[in-house]
Amino acid sequence: MGNHVWRPLYIAVALIALVLVARTFLVPKDFGIHERGYMYGWHRKGNEAEWKAVTVKYRTAASCKACHEDKAESLARTPHGIISCENCHGPALNHPDDPPTLTIDRSRKLCLRCHAALTTPTSGRASIAGINPETHNPEAECTLCHDPHNPVIREALAKSHEEAGVHGASERGNEAYPLVR
């Protein structure tokens, strides 16, 4: 066979060898087939540890309770006890070291997430006390009148209903907060 056949072949073989050599250096050692097989487990194993190392920002209400036990307990007796502290107080991160104080979200927008009245008859939303944000003191912050840590004083509510002659509480029925678990 003549040179015109061998020469391009040599080049092709050299290129393949080059790719294979480069591959051994460039592909990480832990890249390969892992537990989930060739179809789903072909990856760099070290990446799993990278995902595990992401910083936890929300430390959960249980960790808040470790120091703020009094607050946690009084809150637990109210309908808002089901809400995680960090939903309003912001992620704790490494509080109290960093940040020393948390930024509390007291905005109307936050309350409206649950308390804007919506026509959603077949969801739990229908059994939460709701207001029309456009007519219910639109300029005011909710916290001016409502204490987020103690939103409903049940006795007062019952008394006002009694005075108004309402039986069986509001239209939502006796179970004002059936979602509290």
Binding site: Y58, N87, P91, R113, C114, S123, G124, R125, I128, L179
Partner: peptide
Amino acid sequence: ACVGCGFCVKACKTE
């Protein structure tokens, strides 16, 4: 049980 408050979405984005 979902009431559409979106706290999950907010928490996910921050976390």
